[in-house]
Amino acid sequence: MAVLSAFPITQRWPAQHPDRLQLYALNTPNGVKASIMLEEIGLPYEAHFIDIGRNETWTPEFLSLNPNGKIPAILDPDGPGGKPLALFESGAILVYLAEKTGKLLPADPAARYETLQWVMFQTAAIGPMFGQLGFFHKFAGRAYEDKRPLERYIAESQRLLGVLETRLEGRDWIMGDYSIADVATLGWVRNLIGFYEARDLVDFDSLSRVPAWLERGLARPAVQRGLEIPARPL
Results as ranks from 00 to 15, higher is better:
residue 71 I to T: 12
residue 110 A to F: 00
residue 142 R to D: 01
residue 39 E to T: 05
residue 14 P to D: 08
residue 126 I to G: 00
residue 63 L to Q: 15
residue 181 A to S: 06
residue 103 K to A: 14
residue 12 R to Y: 02
residue 192 L to P: 03
residue 216 R to N: 12
residue 145 E to P: 02
residue 26 L to V: 14
residue 11 Q to I: 10
residue 106 P to D: 05
residue 62 F to E: 11
residue 114 E to D: 13
residue 73 A to N: 12
residue 165 E to F: 05
residue 129 M to G: 01
residue 99 E to M: 02
residue 6 A to P: 01
residue 226 G to N: 08
residue 124 A to T: 08
residue 139 F to Y: 09
residue 86 A to I: 07
residue 187 G to F: 07
residue 71 I to A: 11
residue 4 L to M: 08
residue 188 W to K: 02
residue 182 D to R: 12
residue 26 L to W: 12
residue 65 L to N: 13
residue 32 V to Q: 15
residue 216 R to W: 06
residue 57 T to P: 15
residue 175 M to I: 12
residue 232 R to P: 09
residue 186 L to S: 05
residue 6 A to T: 08
residue 172 D to Q: 15
residue 215 E to N: 09
residue 204 F to G: 08
residue 126 I to S: 00
residue 86 A to Q: 12
residue 25 A to V: 08
residue 184 A to I: 13
residue 58 W to C: 07
residue 85 L to W: 09
residue 217 G to S: 12
residue 133 L to Q: 01
residue 222 A to E: 10
residue 92 A to L: 08
residue 223 V to N: 04
residue 86 A to N: 09
residue 2 A to K: 04
residue 66 N to E: 12
residue 69 G to D: 15
residue 124 A to Y: 04
residue 234 L to K: 15
residue 107 A to W: 02
residue 157 S to V: 03
residue 53 G to S: 15
residue 84 P to Y: 07
residue 32 V to I: 14
residue 233 P to E: 09
residue 134 G to E: 00
residue 172 D to T: 15
residue 46 E to F: 11
residue 233 P to T: 11
residue 195 F to V: 05
residue 136 F to Y: 10
residue 138 K to N: 07
residue 88 F to V: 11
residue 78 D to I: 03
residue 181 A to G: 07
residue 181 A to N: 05
residue 77 P to H: 05
residue 108 D to E: 12
residue 96 Y to M: 08
residue 5 S to K: 13
residue 35 S to G: 12
residue 82 G to M: 06
residue 87 L to W: 06
